[in-house]
Each structure stands twice: as C-alpha cells, then as structure tokens.
Design a protein around this nucleic acid. Structure first.
Lengths: 192, 192
DNA sequence: CGTAAGTACAAACAAACGGTTGGAGTTAGG
DNA sequence: CCTAACTCCAACCGTTTGTTTGTACTTACG
C-alpha cells in the first residue's frame, strides 16, 4: 500500500475532532487521539506541531463552511423558519460542531479563524436580508444569532433541556425553534 | 481570632467557583484554588474529599436558587418578557452561573442535583402558566427553555456573538431576548 | 490552670499523568 | 539502494492529584 500522507492527516484530524469534541482541549489526551486514529503519536507533532495547533486545525476543519452548507431558499418569514429547521438538522447530523465551538468559547480567549467566520456570517446575514427585504442589518444579525444559539444549545447544553423538559425530545425542540424563528422573522418584517 | 470553619469552607468554595468557571473541571487546578482562597490545599481534601466533589459543591452553591431569585410579576406576555429581562440581568450579574452550567453540560454526563433543579424548573413553569393561563405545560417548558438558553449563551458562548455581530453589545442583546420572549409568550397565548 | 481535641498552615512527598522529543527500526516506492 | 513515510518505544521533565508529617494556635472542658 502506498504512503498516503493526506489520509494519515485526515485520520488524525478525525480522531482529534472526536476527542476534542468529547473532552475539550484540557480534557483531551494526545495519546487517545493517536490511539483512535490508528496513527503514531509522533505524526501529530510532525504534521500539526503541538496540541493547540491540532485543536485549531480540528475546529477549522469541522467548522468548514457550516453556514454555507445551509442556504436560505425563497423569501418571507417561512423561508427563515425553513432555514432554521435545516440548520437544526445540520447541527444534529454534525454533532461535533456545536460542542467544539462551545469548548472554544469557554476555553479559548478568541475565536479560531475569526475573520473568515465573520465573512461567512455576514453572507448569511445578507441572505436573511434578501429573504426579509425590509429589515435592518442589526435585526438580521440578532435573528441569525438567536437561531444559531438555539440550535447549538440543543447539542452542547443537554443538561438544561433535561432539567426543564424531562426526557429531551428532538422533534419537539426542532418545532419550537422553527416557530420561534418564524415569529421573529415576521415581527422583524412588520416592525420596520 | 476565633476559628471560623464556615468561613474557611466558603472561601474555598468561592475560589473553586471562580477557578472552575474560568477553566472548567479538567482545566482547573487544585493548587490554584488553594492559592486564591488563601487556605491550605489540605483543607480542600479535608472538607470536600476530592476535586470532583468540590466541583459539585461549587456548582450546587452557585446554582443556589437562581430561578427562585427571579420571580414572574404580573401576567400576560409582557410579564414573561419582563421576567426574561430580569433573568438576563441576573445572569450577567452572576457571571459564573452560566459558565459553570455550560462546563457541566460538556464535561459531565449528568446534571448535578438534577432532581432539585427539576423541581425549581417545574415551579417556574407553573409561574409562567399562571401568567399565561391558556398555555399547555409543554409550551411553557419550551418557552422557559428558550429564555434560559438565550440568556446563558450570552455569557457562555461569546465567540458566536463576536463573530456574528462584531463587537458584542449587551443592551442590544438584552432587548432582542426581551422581544423574543414577548413574541413567544403572545403567540403561545393566542394559539391555544 | 491544664490538657485534650479541633482547626489551620507549611512543606515535603508519592505516584501517576501528559505533552513532547529522540532514536532505532520498518515499510513502501522509485 | 535510497529516501520518505511511518511505527515503536523509551525517556524526559514539568505538572497534578492526593497524602503525610510536623507545628502552632484555639477552644472546650475538667
């Protein structure tokens, strides 16, 4: 079998994403990442330098273009609600994304790749304003922020859901977020 | 000066709350907690047993009766919005609360003191249903969950706010949450 | 008063853990 | 054969949890 350095790095990154997602930066163990990946520990230092850089690479890779993968289709409040529902589905089908960003927010002082993420956010804000032509940029930002916060919290803050609703119910939570998004979008359109 | 064992434990708990809030369970250092408290490290093990029990004690103490401290006054959607605003103020003036619960959700499998917290939540759900008589229990739970999630995220997930809105603005976020709460409360009342 | 029990601190210690490095050897392709 | 990619292993070295020992001071109680 030929050497495939890209595959080796990818396996390391996959393992790092899982480990960091589960245990965070402080809790993650280099040894465990190497074990999960099936690669040698030394490869981590060869390819990524150190634990901190590996975390950044893992987060960057998992972030990918998350927002870009969930476009807003159509226009009007129900289009925003539809986006919220699909973003919720995206987040639940990429369980590491919300947890990694949550760890990042708690453990790190400053977001990884802030500029690029800001650009992607701004594009999404523009899309929202395309679907709701009458609203201001600030209102669109607030709306996006609320949607993302609610979707991420479902994955990264299970205890709050558990304590309040008893057994968490994903479909129910999805519906609630969808409804919230539609109300906010409708209100924003009407108010301005 | 007389021995004041309660004060000693309180100083340890205060220091533990700060340290765990900043760095989480894995990131927190026993030595640092002892240093901050001005007490000896040995006192931690004497009073709390080990790091895990200290974390639970710290979280329990910081949780206190958070929800009970923010009553719902009056009735109608604006009463719920008013509650959301005061809960936001409570969370921002108790900066460790949201971060500790966030750490707990990520690092621990199960919430500390789940039963008591469930009871306090249920009381708050009842209060909401008192203010919005027509709504179901499930809808009230969803509403409370959304309010708490949004308020906590302001403290525990700064990066998302930073990336989307640029410089975070507390008053603006407070207003957005207030508005969201009122819309949800109004919608819930009307729908049923 | 005197002594015993309880509280606290300082310091040292044990044992394990964890990130990181280096070296020696192996596998694969050209 | 040569080189790059890779594995295996051991070791380094600071860190961290948790324990122990010794000492000093406080309070309660006889």
């Amino acid at each position: 079998m030929a050497w495939d350095t890209d595959a080796t790095q990818a396996r390391l990154l996959d393992a790092a994403i899982s480990e960091f997602s589960e245990r965070g930066f402080s809790g993650a163990r280099i040894h465990e990442i190497s074990r999960r990946s099936g690669c040698n520990k030394e490869r981590i230092y060869f390819y990524f330098g150190n634990k901190a850089k590996l975390f950044e690479a893992a987060l960057t890779r998992e972030l990918g273009s998350a927002l870009d993968d969930v476009p807003i289709k159509g226009s009007g409040p129900q289009a925003v609600a539809d986006f919220a529902g699909r973003y919720f589905d995206f987040v639940t089908s990429h369980p590491n994304l919300a947890r990694l960003t949550s760890w990042e927010g708690l453990e790190r002082g400053y977001p990884v790749g802030a500029e690029k993420r800001a650009i992607h956010s701004a594009l999404k804000v523009s899309e929202i304003r395309g679907a709701l032509p009458r609203i201001s940029e600030a209102v669109a930002e607030d709306l996006l922020l609320t949607i993302i916060t609610l979707c991420h919290a479902w994955m990264s803050n299970p205890n709050v859901h558990l304590v309040i609703t008893g057994t968490p119910n994903q479909d129910r939570r999805r519906s609630a977020i969808l409804r919230t998004s539609e109300l906010l979008a409708r209100d924003a359109s009407d108010c301005s």
